[in-house]
Amino acid sequence: MERQQVLIGDNLRLARVEGAIYFICACGQTLGSGDENFKDYCLVEESATASIGAGYKASDQGMADQVCFREFFCPSCGLRQATEIARVGDPYLSDIQPRL
């Protein structure tokens, strides 16, 4: 039986809408088409890894400054859909690409 949608975790889904396929947040906001990276349609905050909380700060600030903590928020409801520890300047990882 043909799938009509794919639930991705519990707040994101891939679904058909009027013949096209989109990533859709739990609030109903579309986050790009199914062949794109939904992160490109999120609000993104980049911060130092030390800002995550207690215990994240290390001795070697120079090394720590080479990476960052990224948070990807739904631009409609503010839900955090994804996070990344990434080298500063590296592209967002296109990591979830199910097909319908």
């Binding site: 975790g9 995550i52 994240y56 996070t83």
Partner: peptide
Amino acid sequence: DESFVKNQGMMGGNPGGR
């Protein structure tokens, strides 16, 4: 003694600790 956390969070979760 990691300079930065390397663990990745899942589906919007926080990464693990350092």
